[in-house]
């Protein structure tokens, strides 16, 4: 986590830029526009660049840059490096920016694929790998707002802290925490392959609320018991391949990295 040493953002309206790369059109923040807070937000910050509104987006120093989408061209790569240089704080928002999203589903940085094969046998890749990578494959990201769409309460909690020059609070618990607070019956008890314990909370347990298993889209909970969780799901009759494919299907490749490491 970077320190926001002595930047009193609250003094002036913080200068904010919003940028969209492949997969998103810079509209994640707008998707949640139905909330009252979005109006307050636009009053509290000074939006300097908005990728859809401005043709020449990066021309000055920024307090906060919100970046959406994954990086899949050389041009985008150069663009993100420039944004990083100009922004004190860079926030990756949405799954594409955070984990690569569906575009990165089969991202074959070949070595990774090979290692996967070594560890888990031959996993069939359905399509040829695309070069789509999350923002943090190229530049340092200060904060993440995962999800597709992102969660409004989580986004506002983070943005409001940045407006006040304070360090945002991460949600350090697995999805199961929120799942229980929403009074859902645990799907694992019915032998449904839920990834809640391996996944960082913050989504409000959106999937289990509808009886659907968590597929890990919020990214890894680094305290997850990756090793035993896989064994548990195998005991439900799933093969390791099927399990891995499930995770990969939803931009969970950061979770895969943990599995590969055998957890912590």
């Amino acid at each position: 986590m970077t320190e926001i040493s002595n930047t009193k953002l609250a003094v002036a309206k913080p200068k904010v830029g919003i940028y969209g790369f492949t997969g998103c059109a810079g509209d994640q923040l707008l998707i949640i526009h139905t909330e009252d807070e979005i109006l307050n937000l636009f009053n509290s910050v000074d939006i300097r660049s908005f990728v859809m509104a401005s043709s020449n987006p990066i021309e000055e120093e920024l307090d906060v840059a919100f970046v959406e989408g994954s990086i899949s061209t050389e041009e985008e790569r150069e663009h993100i490096l420039k944004i990083r240089k100009r922004a004190k704080i860079l926030v990756a928002i949405g799954n594409c920016a955070v984990s690569g999203g569906p575009q990165a589903m089969f991202t074959g940085d070949n070595t990774f694929e090979k290692r996967m094969n070594k560890v888990y046998g031959n996993v069939n890749f359905l399509t040829a790998p695309l070069e789509a990578k999350p923002i943090d494959a190229f530049v340092e990201v200060d904060y993440y707002l995962p999800g597709c769409p992102i969660s409004a309460p989580q986004a506002f909690a983070l943005i409001s802290r940045l407006i006040h020059g304070a360090i945002p609070e991460s949600y350090p618990h697995p999805v199961c925490h929120e799942c229980k607070l929403n009074e859902n019956r645990c799907l694992l008890l019915d032998k449904i392959a839920c990834f809640g314990p391996l996944t960082m909370g913050g989504c409000g347990s959106a999937c289990p609320n509808h009886g659907l298993p968590c597929v890990g889209c919020w990214g890894p909970n680094d305290d997850g018991n990756f090793e035993h969780h896989l064994e548990l799901l195998e005991s439900f009759g799933k093969t390791r391949e099927e399990i891995l494919r499930l995770i990969r299907g939803y931009g969970g490749h950061k979770i895969l990295k943990y599995i590969e490491k055998g957890g912590k």
């Binding site: 320190e3 002595n6 009193k8 020059g165 360090i167 609070e169």
Partner: peptide, 9 residues
């Protein structure tokens, strides 16, 4: 961390 950083401001 969070609180101490703000206190230092």
């Amino acid at each position: 961390g969070k609180l101490t950083e703000s206190l230092f401001q």
